[in-house]
Design a protein around this nucleic acid. Sequence first.
DNA 1: CATGAATGAGGGTTCATTCAT
DNA 2: TATGAATGAACCCTCATTCAT
Lengths: 180, 180, 180, 180
Amino acid sequence: MEDVARAAGISKGAVYLYFDSKAALFKALVESRVSPLRENFERLAVAGASDPMGTLKSLALIAARGFSNPDVVAVMRLAIGLSDRFPEITNYYREHVVERMHSIVEVSSQPPSIEAQIRVVDKPAMTRVIIGPLLFEALSVHSLKVDRGFEDPQKLIDATLISFSGGRVPRANLVRRTKA
Amino acid sequence: MEDVARAAGISKGAVYLYFDSKAALFKALVESRVSPLRENFERLAVAGASDPMGTLKSLALIAARGFSNPDVVAVMRLAIGLSDRFPEITNYYREHVVERMHSIVEVSSQPPSIEAQIRVVDKPAMTRVIIGPLLFEALSVHSLKVDRGFEDPQKLIDATLISFSGGRVPRANLVRRTKA
Amino acid sequence: MEDVARAAGISKGAVYLYFDSKAALFKALVESRVSPLRENFERLAVAGASDPMGTLKSLALIAARGFSNPDVVAVMRLAIGLSDRFPEITNYYREHVVERMHSIVEVSSQPPSIEAQIRVVDKPAMTRVIIGPLLFEALSVHSLKVDRGFEDPQKLIDATLISFSGGRVPRANLVRRTKA
Amino acid sequence: MEDVARAAGISKGAVYLYFDSKAALFKALVESRVSPLRENFERLAVAGASDPMGTLKSLALIAARGFSNPDVVAVMRLAIGLSDRFPEITNYYREHVVERMHSIVEVSSQPPSIEAQIRVVDKPAMTRVIIGPLLFEALSVHSLKVDRGFEDPQKLIDATLISFSGGRVPRANLVRRTKA
DNA sequence: CATGAATGAGGGTTCATTCAT
DNA sequence: TATGAATGAACCCTCATTCAT
């Protein structure tokens, strides 16, 4: 809390003018930093029902963008690190972030047409296979300070997604690039 | 520290007869719990130079077995969670676990013959793509207490590895099953 | 202080427009809530010099009415509970409430005629014997939340006063009843 | 808590080696300082069933002795003063001290023979009438620092008890004196 | 080798008080 | 007259570490 106060340029006590408790601050952090991501996920999952492969690509891209934001990863680090002293925080993160992401990705893997496009059979595995590599990268870079990060996260996404294309790799335009 | 003492059946003070500090205890924990895994990695990487695909499969299997051990995941959780109060711990974990795993997997992806077997091009991405899904699963289950864990981790490994087989999925025996 | 502000429908800061400090607010609280009682005491003591027994009865009745007011008891609770952090508050209460009540009751026990009516000899004990039972009841009910309170405080007054009537208990009209 | 630590000559943190929390410390304080008194009460109430008047006298004497101990009064002051921030403390005091004293005194007023000895009719009033004056004295002296305390508490007891003797005041030996 | 009592810094939180607006 | 944002000291409690025994 003191770090937050210092970062905000206010006193320790003043934090409590804005948030009732550490847990409340964390929840607000989730809502402001992570939930927009989750909402993007939900929007895409709904909109992309007819094109599962494209949807999964987009989900990966959104996740990669999210994980490139140190704040987003910091929230996860807190959720993991505070599980002993603030179970409420870990619980909130699990229910509002992790479990929902699982649901969304699994839903995106439902349409029957998917079998024609994607070779991975086990749907519950989907979330792990798509998000896992990006998560690993994010934790490595932002939490563990490994300095081997990708300058171009697209490469990691490509490597992740190639698995689902059954050999026909539309390399040139596997995923639409962002014009940052 | 108190938990460790209680688990060991000794007094809090006695812990300091065996370890100089919390960081030293953590390092010993890494050596006893995580390094055997890393050594398995190294052995396999050296031995399997001629068969990169088989090597990667074996690495994934070892990683999956490691992550199914709550202790192994707990060490990682500590490394992530203590970064603020004990940077030394996080640094040690990065240098002795994460960075070494990166190196090993990348080395295993070096032989020229690999291109014939594996379609993933970007070698630095390899570690993330292989370990990431298993890491995600491990953190979800053991740290965030998500209750959607796989009963059979082999399914997750299969889903992970399928990406590298170029469509020819030798499903029956993709990876040798463990006889639990 | 925040509770006071909320109850008054103003902001926390606005309280300091009316009172210089918490101690000043407390003093004003004493004047508005408790002093009227004390003034009743003083009036009765002066007026009833010729009938000590009747005077003491009236004093008890006034005290009982006062203690039935949660605000009056709350002021005493504050005086007792804040003695560590705000000694000024405790001092004020002692000087302006408790010591004055002692004086008044003792004065009311002075007239020579009293010996004919009241058998209690030790005059300093008078305040305690008259006020004590009512105080006990008030603290029990309003501060300690004991749920054995009297619905009819008159019974307690009767029991208290009976001691002074020397056996001739004019039960029917020992003290004039209030028409609640 | 800091005051307790200082009084004990140890550090603030060391208090928690002996007591789990502030509430636990308070409860231990009740058991060590107040419960012996309560047990005396209970013993007397049981033993003195055949002589209610004598029993009540003894109860008053024990209460007076207890209240002359600043620690005993300090515990009550805490129970009253901490009701906002530590309701658990107030609740414990109510249940383990106040309500039990009520019960004991009322039980002591049950025997049929009492009517011959004591004129007070309303039994629930008994506790207040006996304990109240002593409580008032104790709070005045030890909490509010009134300097009008009785040097000889026996006088207060006498004044309290005289009410029950129906006019026949065995002044010389109303209650056995303590040889302090 | 082992204890257990003790410490002191820091954690999250509350609250009386101040002050620019 | 009134606000509301802000402070800073104090509060209860935890925990890595030390040390006499």
